[in-house]
Design a protein around this nucleic acid. Structure first.
Lengths: 191, 191
DNA sequence: CGATTTTTTGAATCATATCAACGTACGTGG
DNA sequence: CCACGTACGTTGATATGATTCAAAAAATCG
């Protein structure tokens, strides 16, 4: 029984305790340690993860061999490489725990069965994805309208929980700055 | 009767001709001319648009007064400011026709009614948004891994239909380059 | 405490922006 | 169908934000 997921479902659709008992059966609870990898680039992306506790990040390794973070998931967020997942293709991305975490994991086939059994959940996921898509468009807006310095301070001001929980160099990589430059602008601001 | 939308729905869910007759009633056909604006920043974003023919773009006006394009929609794409739309907030973005276009438009309330009447469509939109979200993550990957020059040539190589239909300075703005720089790297490549 | 991870510093360099001006093309009305 | 005006693309000179590299300092963790 995951109180977390139950509440999150009920933010968008109405699910009874009884139905939820059956729904949760489709999932597997996974405890992962900091730095543990949940999914690998180059392999089939066959699961979606719901974060109950902790923090995940999605990243890829650039041609220069640098890890580039492109998404985080804190509590109540879903994470997977959605394009690879829907198209049944090998993923471009790694998914790794930034902190010790507990996630619910569901495989592609199980999710299909779940949605078939509880079609109300289509609405839930439709909304979740609509918000996720909208947010990523919003992120692009910030990336295009501000200087790197502004992007960094805008982000840490708007999402202080990240600045506290996630190392600075990961935030840098998520926002497309080098860690050195983050250091520099923070020093500049202090003085 | 929109053959376009009918076929697009049937890529993801099964809709009979009969049901589609009722579904299409929820929409309004809009013909828009090149440069015509369909939605304005600062106003409630109350419609979703499905492009039957032509091309739309979504943009905002930066603090420096520059129009920044952040999304295009060609045939069979949906477009709106999804975050503003779901949250019933004023939008950050303008939506404008890049070419003469024909779109199907549906209001928030109408879409709610539509989804209530035809719950199968929740699956359709879930998939559309999942793909849209996945694609926007993919775009971020490119933005973070390549130089501006690589981004430009990667994009025009992968999506030649845009390079043909859309003015260069809009592609520049979509990818986060200045038009001058695009000129420069194209000249460099020619020689 | 030592070992690893994360952050900082500084100097040199480069990719890309900015500004201003000019060239070209296209489509609209006369 | 020409001509004019606006929209689009190019060029070059200059400026700068941000990266790169190398190394040291600081923080965290077992």
């Amino acid at each position: 029984m995951s109180q977390q997921l139950f509440e999150h479902l009920n933010r968008f659709v109405q699910i009874s305790k009884g139905d939820f008992k059956d729904i949760i059966e489709f999932f597997e609870v996974k405890k992962v340690e900091k730095k543990e990898v949940l999914a690998r680039a180059g392999t089939l992306c066959n699961s979606i993860f719901f974060v109950e506790k902790g923090c995940l990040r999605m990243y890829f390794i650039s041609e220069k061999g640098i890890e580039q973070t492109i998404q985080f998931a804190l509590e109540n967020w879903w994470m997977t490489d959605d394009l690879a997942y829907t198209e049944r293709n090998p993923s471009d991305f790694y998914i790794q725990a930034v902190e010790n975490a507990q996630v619910l994991s569901i495989s592609y086939d199980q999710q299909e069965r779940l949605l078939h059994t509880f079609p109300q959940l289509e609405k839930y996921f439709r909304r979740v994805y609509q918000i996720a898509y909208g947010s990523s468009i919003r992120k692009m807006k910030y990336l295009n309208s501000f200087s790197k310095e502004e992007i960094y301070f805008h982000f840490t001001a708007h999402f202080p929980e990240f600045a506290q929980r996630v190392p600075q160099y990961l935030i840098a990589s998520f926002l497309g700055l080098t860690p050195e430059y983050v250091s520099e602008i923070r020093a500049k601001k202090r003085s």
